[in-house]
Design a protein around this nucleic acid. Structure first.
Lengths: 99, 99, 99, 99
DNA sequence: ACCGTGGTTAGCTTTC
DNA sequence: GAAAGCTAACCACGGT
């Protein structure tokens, strides 16, 4: 079985290849989803690699990766906290009719 | 820089802004790393969102997300297995001197 | 026990030793868990040692540990891939009502 | 290729199956190592499972797994610390001739 | 003796 | 709210 994912076999056992074949059409649709997802995940992995590279570069510049990760975590928490606060503020504003 | 940690520079708040200011320069460098990482992580998160969206779209097209995730996982495992096989082969080759 | 944490019991140092003492009973139960875990982890560490020993023995018999580890990894990946395939098949079967 | 690990093929391209065949003997030895390691790793995994089960049991008894893990870590550190101290003591003893 | 790599474990997110 | 899958931190091993 040369197809890397053996998926196609499960979709239809008859009438493959016809235009308008329900299973075939669904299969194409499904494959398209798979390809889109795979593509996106590859990009995501590539970004993860890039991030690792930046940390590596920082490390070779003499910084401590472990601590840098902590800092990034804090930064993120602060951003989220800020967002929370903004949402809370909006809530108050609308509560008192300040649109 | 022989000191394993560049933390010390952050304790110095004097003499900032001068050209050649060691702490300031290191700090700028570090900030630049942080910004790059933050940017990359934002893109990564965006991609994760995109992936979720595709699954949602597939779901509303009548496909089962649970199965789709399994398929994607299997696809990934197949790719990794192949890579591992290639690496092992390379390792053998170099081990027996076939460069 | 509705309190999400059983920590509170340990702050109580009064009335210990009585039959039916809530804190004491929970404490005994907890200690029993700890002991069981500790025992299991010791056995696990012993096995890790054994594995190291086998690699060492293989090395002194002239085999390359690095390659051997790769082989073991590949073996493991193959087993996992097969399991994943089986699970995916089961999922398909139940999805199309073939129980 | 039906052999799950494709290893055998790399060991000898000739004269397989003879008693005293160097490559074949080495191969058998190697396979024996692999089997021993695999066996040990299975046992190790089984123990890891057991540990997980105990934590699950503790959880359903109302204890917090996260905290329990911390406690186990501390316990382990104490054991190791104690061992360190004992070794240091032995060192002192032998240093002052108290065998 | 240190560094880099790989494996293990814990925490987090997301799903059901 | 529990369970699972994913991600990131930690740790230990092997190589240099």
């Amino acid at each position: 079985m040369s197809n890397p994912s053996n998926i196609a076999e499960f979709k239809s056992d008859s009438a493959e290849g016809e235009a308008g074949d329900v299973a075939g059409v669904a299969g194409k649709r499904l494959l398209s989803f798979f390809d889109r997802i795979e593509r996106l995940e590859e990009e995501k992995s590539a970004l993860a690699e890039d991030i690792k590279d930046v940390y590596a570069e920082a490390k070779s510049a003499g910084f401590e990766v472990k601590i840098m990760r902590r800092v990034m975590k804090l930064r993120k928490m602060e951003v989220e906290k800020r967002q929370e606060e903004d949402e809370l503020l909006s809530l108050y504003m609308s509560a008192i009719g300040m649109v």
